[in-house]
């Protein structure tokens, strides 16, 4: 069993670009769409070199740290994505098939799975431990579990970021999702930070479960997007209700997550 506090949140998609807009959309409102993603956390020269995948990740990481009012250089990071940046993969593979000597060195170093956390660390001057992981369709559950354990074992806040870009053109015969989604959840050891938004209790077991059906969010289709498995947690927190979510971890294990949003009220009472 693992207990952690959620102290900051960040979200970005084509239909909402921050937590406030996400909550607004859930209540049936609409948000301005089609805005250029310009994460302020990275310097303009780095921003120009950074691919969309990096900008999405850095944006939600910055949002989560701001919500928690935590100095970014004091948190460890775990970045998770099933496929990494499929658009760079497609660029690399097309170029290799056509004119391999023409590979761009910048795109090559941006192709590493830890590109987003690399840019983030440079922008924030953080030397804290940083990981980039994948669990394919279980990337969200594995990243939450790994990040929460790190938070407890190392007594450090851990910024867990999950994301998946839209399926790149050549991969449309393999993967079904069409829209990008990125979210960050800043997990902290219980009681370490004052900005507690919700408490999570995680229980891993050898039980097998099916992933939950995604609730419809007006105006956006994230079905099939592996990062969208975080949505049931995000929606429960946004709607200020306690919830239990079960997610598969691997071929023979699963994670039960209890979300308690009552902590704010309890804190203010005490």
């Amino acid at each position: 069993m693992t207990d952690v506090d959620v102290v900051g949140l960040g979200v970005w998609s084509e239909s909402f670009s921050n937590w406030e807009e996400f909550c607004h959309v859930l209540r049936g409102g609409s948000a301005e769409t089609g805005r250029t993603l310009k994460p302020q956390a990275i310097a303009p020269n780095e921003r120009r070199r950074a691919p969309l995948s990096v900008k999405m990740a850095v944006e939600v990481m910055d949002q989560a740290c701001r919500m928690a009012a935590l100095e970014p250089a004091t948190v460890a990071t775990v970045f998770a994505s099933a496929l990494g940046d499929m658009h760079i993969t497609e660029y690399m593979c097309r170029t290799l098939a056509d004119a391999p000597q023409a590979i761009s060195p910048t795109r090559f170093h941006n192709s590493v799975h830890n590109a987003a956390t690399g840019y983030w660390s440079i922008a924030t001057q953080s030397h804290c431990p940083s990981s980039a992981v994948s669990g394919y369709s279980n990337s969200v559950s594995m990243a939450i579990l790994d990040g929460a354990i790190q938070a407890v074992e190392e007594q450090i806040p851990v910024l867990v970021t999950v994301q998946e870009v839209a399926t790149a053109p050549a991969f449309k015969s393999v993967y079904e999702w069409t829209q990008p989604f990125s979210a960050a959840m800043l997990l902290s050891p219980v009681g370490m930070c004052s900005s507690n938004i919700a408490s999570l209790r995680l229980n891993a077991s050898g039980n097998l479960v099916e992933p939950p059906q995604l609730e419809d969010i007006p105006g956006i289709d994230l079905s099939g997007n592996p990062a969208a498995r975080l949505l049931p947690l995000l929606i429960a927190i946004a709607e200020q209700r306690n919830a239990d979510v079960q997610l598969p971890l691997s071929r023979g294990s699963s994670l039960a997550i209890s979300i308690d949003v009552g902590c704010q009220a309890r804190q203010s009472e005490s």
């Binding site: 990494g84 590493v112 799975h113 830890n114 956390t117 940083s130 990981s131 980039a132 992981v133 994948s134 669990g135 279980n138 594995m142 579990l145 790994d146 891993a204 050898g206 971890l249 691997s250 071929r251 023979g252 294990s253």
Partner: peptide, 10 residues
């Protein structure tokens, strides 16, 4: 069948 993850930090 326990938890399974792949780390990719270059």
């Amino acid at each position: 069948t326990g938890p399974a993850i792949t780390i990719s930090t270059a």
